[in-house]
Computed example of a mutant assay.
Amino acid sequence: MTTNDIDFDRLLRANLERVFNERDLDKRQTAIAELFVEEPVMYEPTKIVRGRLEISRVAGELLKQFGPTFRFVPDGVAVGHHGLARLAWHAGPEQGPIAVTGADVAEVEGGKIARLWVLLNPPQ
């Protein structure tokens, strides 16, 4: 698979919807297996998360912490080339207000996310 074959928008949107918006553990872990390499690394502002199980755990805890209507919503289209992609997003309760904005930057290998940086915008 070449970098030209990768649908970066589909991949990063699937990560938001099927991993970070998914409250069902089994569905989330299935999605992570499809979307991430065997040993992914996620870089958050305050920690480094290693492995599929830990990424699933972090996503689940985040959703639990912020309540049943908290969602991540993509802003625009993901852009990428040469194995690097970015998708801006905002998050908060479904009926608002927006609690946080940021972007995911992913290094993609073989069509899957190998490394994911979660970049948070400063509060406004």
Rank of each mutant, 00 (worst) to 15 (best):
D75E: 15
V58H: 13
I48Y: 03
P74G: 07
P93F: 07
P74M: 00
H90K: 06
I48W: 07
E44C: 07
A85W: 10
S56I: 11
G102S: 10
A91F: 00
D104N: 15
V100K: 07
E94C: 02
I98T: 14
G67N: 08
W89K: 11
H90Q: 06
A78Q: 10
P97L: 12
V100T: 01
R50H: 04
R71K: 14
P40T: 12
V49C: 14
T69M: 10
G83E: 13
E94N: 04
E44G: 04
G67P: 12
A85N: 09
I48D: 03
P74Y: 01
R57H: 08
E61R: 07
V49T: 15
A78N: 09
M42D: 02
Q65R: 15
K47L: 05
H81E: 12
A85I: 08
E94M: 12
H82V: 10
G80S: 13
V100P: 01
V58G: 09
P45L: 06
W89F: 09
F66C: 10
V77G: 08
G92H: 02
R71A: 14
L53I: 04
P97D: 11
G102M: 14
Y43G: 00
M42E: 05
I98Y: 04
I98L: 10
T101S: 13
R71D: 03
V77K: 15
G102L: 03
S56C: 07
L63I: 07
V79P: 01
P45S: 00
P45C: 03
R71Q: 11
L84I: 13
G67S: 06
P93E: 13
T101P: 00
A103M: 08
F66H: 14
V73M: 03
A59I: 00
L53T: 09
T46V: 01
K47H: 06
I48M: 01
G102C: 05
R52T: 08
D75R: 15
K64Y: 05
R52I: 03
F72E: 05
M42N: 03
P74I: 05
L62E: 08
V79A: 12
G92M: 06
G96A: 02
P93N: 05
G76V: 08
